[in-house]
Design a binder for these strands. Structure first.
Lengths: 251, 251
DNA sequence: ATCTATTTGTACGTATGTATT
DNA sequence: AAATACATACGTACAAATAGA
């Protein structure tokens, strides 16, 4: 409905015109994920465009995660809700040429993760809670080598990500998940967390256990303050690394 | 296309394969925005794909904001850094089918905007500060009609957005800007803020003025607490509206 | 299991538009 | 103004996938 940020480029006028038309069609008709759009042939006739042009337009929308196409009888272009992963990949592309430091990411974590923790106190499903407990136990021992250390970091970030995904605020959930993903990619693709830090492991493990207790007990304020302390401790230990976020297309 | 034919044929296998190839090419060669990619003809030869397939691949990347194409001599496909607006449009698409409430947005604002304010204390360029002051003066009078009231809300959100854009943390800047944009779209496309509220105007104006003082004085803690109070007051006045975020494609 | 109909996916040739020199 | 180099658009033919008979 909004004036569809008209990217008034003269270049691919026809193709983008068709793409805009399709988006407007979806909005106007109130189509939902799974609903079918007119097929290529119909669009060619209705819009007076060539097959190639129509196809390019649908591919563009598919690239944005809005459409999915299927071949065969009953096939066609179908509305698709943008997946979480796709949206994160798009956002990662945005930051590809920007200089996003670990400190930047932690500033957001400190502001947001305590909020998630408080919100989820007493609301974590038993199944998830059991998994979280098991993971925490799995890493009850300090890491023996760098490979294991890296695995522990990734697992810790996965925990934060999963907790965020349970959060009922979709935006909060997304942003926190995105940050965890970025840090996780960093851990994998660079040598972040490389200088072995016993303190990091020890504190991390302690905070995780304490946090799970607070979440299970439904104590929102304890969960919030524990998470805050956890994040601030982690930031202190991280900031020294001063690493820059990896170049990582993930589309 | 002789031997290179892949065995794993999903749907748009060829096209997406070319797109992936191009992304990998950019990363591997460390190309920067403005750098040129091989032209259509070269890619057709190098990859053994047809013109249409190559074109569709470049259009997909262009739709993701990673490429721009120019016609004419010396033209071709050029690396483009994803624009802020484009990234926000992609993210807005993600939330199109999700139920994002005003309360959700305010939860993030309360957590993040005080951080922005504290960070920017004493760091707002004089030119920006002058504009902020002027805008605040422009709305020193309570709104006379709903049109004026809406204009004031949009202007207020624009201020928050511009302040966020000055923030050196790219992620914090982006997220806060995105929230302001979502709320702004909401104001324009729906009747949000419609039930006239004198209290909302009065408090908003007061907080803006106080905030500018703190920012200019370089008092980070005053800026933080003022912003927090501002956001919490606004949330209280908003939550009653319980509006749902507009359906708004912006690609 | 095979065939058939439907619909997208790929290929290629040609023509047109557009910007640089 | 004209030639050049490149993307853009069109049309047709055929290949591949899939649901249903």
């Amino acid at each position: 409905m909004p004036p569809a940020t008209t990217r008034t480029r003269r270049n691919g006028a026809r193709t983008e015109q068709v793409a805009e038309h399709l988006k407007a069609y979806i909005v106007q008709k109130g189509l939902r994920p799974g609903d079918r759009l007119p097929g290529e042939a119909e669009l060619i006739g209705a819009l007076g465009m060539s097959k190639g042009t129509v196809r390019e337009a649908t591919r563009m929308l598919a690239a944005q995660g809005l459409l999915r196409t299927r071949t065969g009888p009953g096939g066609g272009a179908f509305v698709d809700d943008v997946s979480r992963d796709h949206a994160m990949a798009m956002l990662a592309n945005f930051f590809y040429f920007r200089d996003l430091s670990v400190a930047d990411l932690y500033q957001l974590r400190i502001a947001l993760e305590p909020e998630v923790a408080a919100m989820m106190a007493g609301k974590v499903p038993p199944a998830s809670m059991a998994r979280f407990r098991a993971d925490t136990r799995r890493f009850a021992q300090p890491p023996q080598d760098t490979g294991e250390e890296r695995a522990q970091h990734v697992a810790s970030l996965a925990f934060h990500r999963e907790l965020a995904e349970l959060c009922p605020n979709p935006l909060l959930s997304f942003v926190v998940g995105f940050i965890a993903k970025m840090l996780s990619d960093l851990t994998v693709f660079r040598r972040l967390y490389e200088p072995h830090s016993h303190a990091l492991w020890e504190k991390g493990h302690l905070y995780h256990a304490r946090l799970l207790d607070a979440l299970e007990a439904g104590d929102a304020e304890a969960a919030r303050s524990t998470m805050r302390a956890h994040m601030e401790a982690a930031r202190t230990l991280m900031t020294e690394q001063e690493a820059r976020v990896a170049k990582a297309f993930l589309g």
